[in-house]
Design a protein around this nucleic acid. Structure first.
Length: 448
RNA sequence: UCCUCGGUAGCUCAAUAGGCAGAGCGGCCGGCUGUUAACCGGUUGGUUGGAGGUUCGAGUCCUCCCCGAGGAGCCA
C-alpha cells in the first residue's frame, strides 16, 4: 500500500508512488490526456492521466469525473515546472483512481465571475474556491500570531462573557435576547470585564466574537466579528502605542512569512506590508484635522472613486474618506491620538489641561482599510468616572461594579481592541470584510 | 432610518423608438498527448423579482410591493 500523503508534502515524495485523497476542482483534457486539478485542504496540484498508461477502463473513469467529485488517487509524484498549484511545481502521474462520490452536475459555481448575492447564498460552496481557501488560512495564521505574541509577552487569556446585562459602551445598538424573562444583550466588547481582570492578573486579553446590531451595510462592517482586546495595568497611552505597534508588526510579518503562498495566490502586493515595522507615525486629532482641511483646500482626492477630500470641522468624527486620506499619507499604519472626548466612549481619560480631548488612539491601516484598532487610556478616578457616566446618561446602577474597580487600588491602565476581520482583509488585500470570515453575518443575511 | 444603483437561462450579461427573449460561460454528446477559467463541432437551457395598470402589442412605459448591492450615521 502506498503511503497516504498531503499535497503540501508532495515535494518530499518525488519519484515515489503515493496516495492522495481530495476533490476534483476541475478536469481538463486533450484526447488521450486528462488533467485533474486536485485539492485536499493542504494544497492544490494536478494529477495527469494518460490513456495508454492507465488502460481504457480507468481512463474512462477519469473522463467521467465531474467538478467537486471526491476521489482517492494513486500515482507517482513528479517534479515538473509546468505543474500549476499551491505550492506548485509537483504533479502526480496517475496510475489508479477510486471515485468516492461522483458529484452532481452541474456544480453551481462555475469558473467565472459571479455576483455577490449568488456567492453569499452559496457561501458553503464558495469556501472551496482557491481565494477563500487562502484567506481562511491567513486568518488562522493571524489568530495564531495574535495569541502567540500576547502569550509570550506576559498577557493572560481571560474569557469574558458573551451574555451581558447592559451596554458595554453605551453607544451602539445591541442584540437583545430573553435571559429567562429579563433582557440581556450579546456582548459588543469584553473591555469592562478586562478592566476587572487586570487587578488580578496585570495584563490580560479576551478574544472572541462580538456583536453589533447596527444597520451598517458597508464593506467595513459585520454584525458578528472577532476582536482581541488586551488590557494592561500601570500603563499610560504612550506605552500602549508601543505595545500596539510591536503587536501589529509581529502579526503582519508572521503572515508574510508563513502565508507567502496564500498571499501570492491572492495576488497581494506584499511590498506594501514589508514596511509594517515599528515605529508607526503618530499624529494628533488636531493635526489630522489640519491635514484634512489642507487637502480639501487643495482639492486632493481619495481612492477608490477619486472623490475630493471633504473638509471637516474640529469636533467631528472622521468619515471613511478622511481615514483613507490620512492613512494614505504614510507608508505604514498611523496612530491618530487625542480625539475629542465628545465623539468617544465615556470611559476614556481626559488629557490633563485639555479636558475636551481624551487619551485615545485609533490605528488606521493603509490602503483604505480604515480603523483596525481603537484604544485608549481609561479613566482611573472614581468621581470623574461617575460624572462621565451621568453625563452620557447611562444607567448608573449597571456600572456600580465598574466604578468599584476605581475605589480599590485604582491604577492608570490602558487597552485596545483589534478587529480580526479588518486585519485579515488588509493583509490579504481583499475588498470586503465578508470574505475574511468563513460564514459572515452581514445585515439582512443569516444563511448559510 | 435615509441616499444612490440594480433584479432577464444554473451563472455573467445583451435586447434600437413599445414589435418573434439572445450571447458567452456552465452542463450534456463527440474530437484532440501538456492542459493552466484550453480549443473545435453539436446540444440543452426562460413564470424577464411580484401584483396591478396603459396599449392591438410590455423585459421596455406608469403605480405599489419584495429582494440585493454600495454608501451615510455608528464602529473593529
Amino acid at each position: 500500500m502506498p503511503p497516504i500523503i498531503r499535497i503540501a508534502d508532495a515535494k518530499d515524495y518525488v519519484g515515489e508512488t503515493v496516495t492522495v485523497r481530495g476533490w476534483v476542482k476541475r478536469r481538463t483534457g486533450k484526447g488521450k490526456l486528462a488533467f485533474l486539478r486536485i485539492r485536499d485542504g493542504s494544497g492544490i496540484f494536478q494529477a495527469v492521466a494518460f490513456r495508454p498508461n492507465l488502460g481504457d477502463e480507468t481512463f474512462a473513469k477519469v473522463k467521467s469525473l465531474t467538478t467537486e467529485s471526491s476521489v482517492i488517487l494513486t500515482g507517482q509524484i513528479k517534479a515538473d515546472e509546468r505543474a500549476p498549484g499551491v505550492p506548485g511545481g509537483y504533479e502526480m502521474d496517475l496510475s489508479d483512481i477510486e471515485i468516492v462520490q461522483l458529484a452532481e452536475a452541474p456544480y453551481p459555481i462555475a469558473p467565472k465571475e459571479h455576483g455577490v448575492e449568488f456567492l453569499l447564498d452559496n457561501r458553503h460552496l464558495w469556501l472551496r474556491a482557491d481565494s477563500q481557501w487562502a484567506i481562511q488560512r491567513v486568518r488562522a495564521t493571524v489568530i495564531r500570531a495574535i495569541r502567540d505574541w500576547l502569550d509570550d509577552h506576559g498577557f493572560l487569556l481571560v474569557d469574558t462573557p458573551i451574555l451581558t446585562p447592559a451596554a458595554g459602551e453605551g453607544t451602539t445598538t445591541l442584540f437583545e435576547i430573553d435571559y429567562h424573562g429579563e433582557p440581556a444583550y450579546l456582548a459588543q466588547t469584553g473591555q469592562l470585564y478586562n478592566e476587572a481582570n487586570i487587578f488580578t492578573f496585570g495584563k490580560v486579553y479576551c478574544f472572541g466574537p462580538t456583536f453589533r446590531a447596527e444597520k451598517s451595510k458597508t464593506r467595513r462592517h459585520l454584525q458578528e466579528f472577532w476582536m482581541v482586546e488586551p488590557e494592561i495595568a500601570f500603563c499610560k497611552l504612550e506605552e500602549l502605542l508601543e505595545i500596539e505597534e510591536q503587536f501589529v508588526s509581529y502579526i503582519v510579518q508572521t503572515a508574510l512569512e508563513k502565508c507567502a503562498d496564500e498571499l501570492k495566490l491572492l495576488g497581494r502586493d506584499t511590498s506594501l506590508l514589508e514596511n509594517v515595522q515599528p515605529s508607526f507615525p503618530r499624529i494628533t486629532y488636531d493635526r489630522a484635522v489640519e491635514m484634512i482641511n489642507e487637502a480639501a483646500a487643495r482639492g486632493d482626492t481619495v481612492p477608490p472613486h477619486n472623490e475630493p477630500v471633504p473638509a471637516i470641522e474640529w469636533g467631528d468624527d472622521f468619515g471613511a474618506p478622511h481615514e483613507t486620506y490620512l492613512a494614505g499619507q504614510f507608508d505604514r499604519p498611523v496612530f491618530v491620538t487625542h480625539y475629542p472626548s465628545a465623539v468617544k466612549a465615556f470611559y476614556m481619560e481626559p488629557e490633563p489641561g485639555r479636558p475636551e480631548v481624551c487619551r485615545s488612539a485609533d490605528l488606521l491601516a493603509p490602503e483604505g482599510y480604515g480603523e483596525i484598532i481603537g484604544g485608549s487610556e481609561r479613566m482611573s478616578d472614581p468621581e470623574m468616572l461617575e460624572a462621565a457616566i451621568r453625563k452620557h446618561k447611562l444607567p448608573e446602577d449597571a456600572y456600580d461594579w465598574y466604578i468599584d474597580l476605581r475605589k480599590y487600588g485604582s491604577v492608570p491602565h490602558s487597552g485596545f481592541g483589534l478587529g480580526v476581520e479588518r486585519t485579515v482583509a488588509w493583509i490579504c488585500g481583499i475588498h470586503h470584510l465578508r470574505e475574511a470570515i468563513a460564514f459572515p453575518r452581514v445585515l439582512g443575511r443569516l444563511k448559510p
